[in-house]
Each structure stands twice: as structure tokens, then as C-alpha cells.
Design a binder for these strands. Structure first.
Length: 588
DNA sequence: ACACAATGGACCC
DNA sequence: TGGGTCCCCTTGTG
């Protein structure tokens, strides 16, 4: 087993231990067994190899050493077969075979280096541009944009020169409003979770606007979940609403028992939340499946509350209007993004519902006036480096725009009536495209009336006491500063779906098939934490003991025995609820 | 402890 | 424009 595979093994073992702990598995014995298993099997291997005369490279051997030795022996064998044979005799082994363990980088296929996890730290391929900022010449570990709480996210330089409006805003308005709401609380404490509530990965989340504590969720299979996270066992799933990816959800503002959902099955459904009975409002594939080139999928959807309209956009770049009451289509589809390209999100301005923001796979976000809508008539086109995952107006005034782009940048436009030529800020943040993940979407905090705070999941991992965790980032979009990174040792999966509660300091996270609820730490918990931190500092600071890996110390793969993970585990309260998986409509 | 599959988009021709 | 091919930090399953 080479170093990489061993590292991967250790990493996986840690993960297994973590997930196993939840189900009251006897951890220690399990662990011991595993350790014994692996050690005995590996020694067996060596014995066997030795008996057959094979040379087995030890894990700890240096790559180059092994390679060199192999090369030398091979060359010698070629040039002097007799001498090689003699060497074999000297070694007292018959048919000595040398295996060349050439390490190949899985990214660039070259030798001499390897990309991949070394423990909890991912080592980039040096031949590729930085995985974080996409610039050549360095790797993620040394990227100047690398997220670290101590230093904050470094925003990319503001490219446009301030307009006069900016100047007025800065000098007259900005100083008079506080930058963050008076008591800004980050919901960073895991409150409860619903493990594998969904059959496939979670694709969207929405808090019910009027029913307290009710969270709606959708997954890749089209399953709709309804969960009261205070009454932990009140969970309902409906699998009949859609047949594939549930991309977007909106509660009817006139009837809060009605949910509109958009799906890649090409339909908009209107579902009664109490019965789960849905009726299709729109079906873009009335003739069924005729191959992928004609199958229409719906990603973006929003409501125009004033006009009682539902706005819908498909994967071919077209926008459709639906009348909510008559349940009929209005007018003709209008091309709002490059023909044949997906429209990822739609958002009507909260202040001016007739103003629409669309974002698409054609690398643009566009602002439209829906009263005079024609193809090629956007009010503005906001250029991006790659596919735009999402675009949202700010939640109060609608004056700002926040977009998430697959070029690993979050873009902010501070004033939509100003110069939109280029964004006010570009914030480098890891949220790349990965075909196996729900696309990341940075979203405003609806409660933050200064329209500053945004939340977004992070793709690349952080070494957290020897475990690779993927935090959920709270970003100050006015400075690019990282306000908080939310993570928990029990959540090792990436969390691309995040929703902040419209009134409460609560964060809902969709991570793989699970859903989590976060709340701020209470005063007591904060005090306790500070005390613990002080005690920790005392221990590490006073003795000669080697300082263990800090949260942001990515320097080395320590902890190959995974001890710190277990320490962490001990203090963790288990407050999860597990549900039994069921088919069809299930009340759990 | 592996292998494997699912499957979206970029890029090339 | 469309088909072929490749792909860097996934996750769950068998």
C-alpha cells in the first residue's frame, strides 16, 4: 500500500469512525478490530511477498528512493544478465523480481509528485493553476486568497472607478447606518439534523414563511420533504410531486398552504402541503421523452407577487410566464439567455417585482424589465468568467446584486442603478463546479437590513484537528471579509445548500442527503467555550509538548493514528434524529 | 478495502 | 452546432 492509499485509508477510517459513533457502535472495539485487521493483513502480505522473493517497498520509503533502486536494478539486469542473476543468488532468493512503484499524479499523469489527500490536507497538483483562485504559479495551500479566519478573504481588486453615486453613498449614507445589525448572531452551533432524510442529495431548501419551524426540502430524485425541526419527529416526504431534480420552491404568498415547485422533469407543480396532492401548472414536455436534445428542464422560478405571476425559465434559455390563478401560460416564451443554454436562477426584485434578474450558463446575469420584455432587450448584462450558478437582488431594497460564479468568485454590485459595467467587488471563494454536487449559491441574509452578510458553502476543505471539513462561510460582502466559518466534526460532507431563516437566527443546511439546523451559541455555551480555550492555551503554552494542529494549520499530515478525532468525539453531544427510510408517502 | 457509478459542463474539432 | 472526450478536494453502495 503506497503512502497515498494509506493516507486515504486513514482518512476513510476516521470518517467511518465518526459516522459509526452515531449509531451507538462500540467504537473502541470496532477501532481495535480494524487496526488489528489491517496490521495483520499487511504483515501477511509482506511475509508472502518475502517468501515468493518479491521486494515490497515499505510505506515509509521515499518515492524517489524506490524508483531509483528499481531503475538501477532494471538497468543492471539489462546490461549484465549474468550479474543480475548472480545478484539474485547473493540475495539467496530465486527469481527476484523488482516492482517499480512509479507514483503518477492522478491529475496531470506525470511522475515526481502526487495530488490528493495527505491525511486531512489536500495537496494540489503543482502543474495546474491554483484550485482556489484559478491563477497559475501557486497552489491552494499558498494562494493569497486562501480563506483563513485570522486574515479574512482577500477581495479581488475593485476594477471600476467609483461613480459619483458611490461617492454620495460612502460619504453621506454609509456612515449613518451600522454595517451589521446590532446583535449579529452567527448560527454556528449544530442544533439538530436529519440524517439521510432524502433518498438523493438535497438540492433546495426553503423555510416556510408563516408556519414556525417548518423546513421544506427537495432532492435530486424529486422528493419533497417537510420537517418541523422543533418537533423532531414530525417529518413528511412526498415522492409523487416530481420525477427528478427539484430545483426551486416557492410558497404562494396568497395561500401559505400551497407550494410551487420547479423540476428538471420539465414541470411546475402546485402542491397542497397538507395532503401532498399536486397538480401540474406547466409541463414543458407534453410529448414525453424524445431524447436529451429536446427534453426541457426547469431550474429558475420566482413569483411576481404584485401581478400574481409565476416566472419560469428552462434549460434552453427561455422564459415563461404563468398566471397563478388561471393556471395558464401567458404570452410566448422569450429567449433571455444564449439559445440552448440553461437559465440557472430567476429572481424578482423585492422592491420592484417587475424587475427581474436572471443568471445563466452563458456566463451572464441579466436584468430585465418584465413589463417590456423582448429577447435581446435586457436592462443590463453582467458578464462573468464562467457559468453563473445564481444571482439574487438584495433582500430589502433590491439595490444590490449578489452572484455566484463557477470561476470561484462571488460578485457584488452595490447599486443596480449605477454603473454595472463591472462588479463592485469580486470575492474569491471556493465553490467550483463538481458534477456530483448541487451547485453552490451564495445567498443574502434576509434579516440583515444593511444587506451585507451572505452565506455560502465551501468546496475545499479545512484541516480541522486532522479531519477534512467543509465549512459554511458567512461573508461580509462589503469588504470580502470572512465573518464566520461554520462547521461540525460530525458533518464531513460538503454543504452546498444553505438557507437562512427569514426571522430567526437559524441556518438550514443541505449536505449530501442530510439536513442540518444550526443555531447561535447561547451565552452560557460561549462562556464555557472561552474557559475551555483558556485551559487549552495553558496546556499547550506551558509545557514542552508539541502544539497540535490548529484549526488552520495545514502544514502537515499529523495524527496518522486519528487520535484527535476521537478526542473530539468524546465531547460531542449526539442530538441527531435518525429516520427510517420508507417508500412513497411516509409519515415518520 | 477496494471498485464503481452517477452524470454536468468545458473544450476541441 | 454537435459529438466525443475528459474531468482536482463526492458520496454511497456492494
Amino acid at each position: 500500500m503506497g503512502p497515498t492509499t494509506r493516507a486515504q485509508f486513514v482518512y476513510n477510517r476516521r470518517r467511518r469512525r465518526r459516522s459509526g459513533g452515531r449509531h451507538a457502535v462500540e467504537e473502541a472495539s470496532d477501532e481495535e478490530e480494524q487496526r488489528q485487521d489491517s496490521s495483520s493483513s499487511s504483515s501477511d502480505e509482506e511475509d508472502e511477498a518475502e517468501a515468493s522473493g518479491e521486494e515490497v517497498a515499505d510505506d515509509d520509503d521515499d518515492d524517489e528512493e524506490v524508483e531509483e533502486e528499481a531503475a538501477v536494478v532494471e538497468a543492471a539486469a539489462k546490461e549484465h544478465p549474468a550479474a543480475a542473476a548472480a545478484g539474485e543468488k547473493r540475495g539467496g532468493r530465486k527469481g527476484r523480481i523488482t516492482i517499480s512503484l512509479k507514483k503518477v499524479c492522478k491529475v496531470c499523469k506525470r511522475t515526481g509528485h502526487e495530488a490528493g489527500f495527505k491525511g486531512a490536507v489536500y495537496i494540489d497538483c503543482p502543474m495546474k493553476p491554483c484550485f482556489l483562485c484559478k491563477m497559475p504559479g501557486h497552489t491552494t495551500l499558498t494562494c493569497p486568497h486562501r480563506v483563513a479566519m485570522e486574515h479574512g478573504v482577500i477581495p479581488a481588486p475593485r476594477r471600476n472607478i467609483n461613480t459619483s453615486l458611490d461617492y454620495v453613498f460612502q460619504s453621506q449614507v454609509k456612515g449613518k447606518i451600522s454595517m451589521v445589525k446590532p446583535k449579529f448572531l452567527i448560527p454556528n452551533q449544530l442544533e439538530c439534523g436529519n440524517i439521510k432524510f432524502h433518498q438523493r442529495r438535497v438540492t433546495c431548501l426553503e423555510f416556510h414563511p408563516t408556519r414556525n419551524n417548518v423546513l421544506l426540502s427537495g432532492d435530486k430524485k424529486g422528493l419533497l420533504g417537510i420537517w418541523d425541526y422543533v418537533k423532531l419527529h414530525e417529518k413528511i416526504t412526498y415522492d409523487s410531486v416530481h420525477s427528478c431534480i427539484l430545483n426551486s420552491m416557492k410558497i404562494d404568498n396568497a395561500n401559505d398552504g400551497i407550494l410551487y415547485t420547479a423540476s428538471s422533469d420539465g414541470t411546475i407543480s402546485c402542491t397542497d402541503l397538507d395532503t401532498g396532492i399536486g397538480s401540474p401548472l406547466l409541463n414543458l414536455n407534453p410529448n414525453g421523452w424524445n431524447g436529451p436534445s429536446s427534453w426541457r428542464m426547469i431550474y429558475g422560478m420566482d413569483l411576481n407577487i404584485d401581478k400574481g405571476l409565476i416566472l419560469v425559465a428552462d434549460n434552453f434559455g427561455f422564459l415563461y410566464f404563468l398566471d397563478r390563478r388561471s393556471k395558464t401560460r401567458i404570452g410566448h416564451p422569450i429567449l433571455i439567455h444564449k439559445k440552448g443554454s440553461k437559465v440557472t436562477t430567476l429572481h424578482c426584485s423585492p422592491a420592484h417585482p417587475e424587475v427581474l434578474l436572471s443568471s445563466g450558463n452563458d456566463h451572464y446575469a441579466r436584468i430585465w424589465d418584465t413589463r417590456k420584455l423582448e429577447a435581446n432587450s435586457p436592462l443590463a448584462s453582467l458578464a462573468h468568467g464562467r457559468v453563473v450558478n445564481s444571482g439574487y437582488f438584495s433582500p430589502q431594497s433590491g439595490n444590490k446584486i449578489l452572484t455566484t460564479c463557477q470561476d470561484n468568485r462571488i460578485r457584488v454590485w452595490d447599486y443596480i442603478f449605477g454603473d454595472l459595467q463591472s462588479p463592485s467587488r469580486e470575492i474569491v471563494h471556493s465553490h467550483d463546479f463538481n458534477r456530483h454536487l448541487t451547485p453552490f449559491k451564495a445567498e443574502w441574509d434576509p434579516k440583515d437590513y444593511t444587506e451585507t452578510v451572505a452565506v455560502v458553502g465551501r468546496y475545499i476543505s479545512e484541516n480541522y484537528n486532522g479531519v477534512a471539513l467543509h465549512p459554511i462561510d458567512f461573508i461580509d460582502t462589503s469588504s470580502g471579509k470572512l465573518l464566520a466559518e461554520v462547521m461540525d466534526p460530525d458533518i464531513t460532507t460538503i454543504s452546498p445548500v444553505n438557507k437562512l431563516h427569514p426571522q430567526d437566527d437559524i441556518l438550514a443546511t443541505g449536505s449530501s442527503r442530510s439536513i442540518f439546523i444550526w443555531k447561535p451559541k447561547t451565552e452560557d455555551e460561549l462562556t464555557e467555550e472561552r474557559t475551555k480555550q483558556k485551559a487549552k492555551e495553558y496546556v499547550y503554552g506551558s509545557g514542552s509538548r508539541k502544539k497540535t494542529n490548529g484549526k488552520h494549520d495545514n502544514s502537515s499530515d499529523d495524527d496518522s493514528d486519528g487520535d484527535s478525532g476521537r478526542k473530539n468525539k468524546k465531547t460531542k453531544k449526539t442530538r441527531f434524529t435518525c429516520i427510517t427510510k420508507g417508500k412513497g408517502k411516509s409519515k415518520v
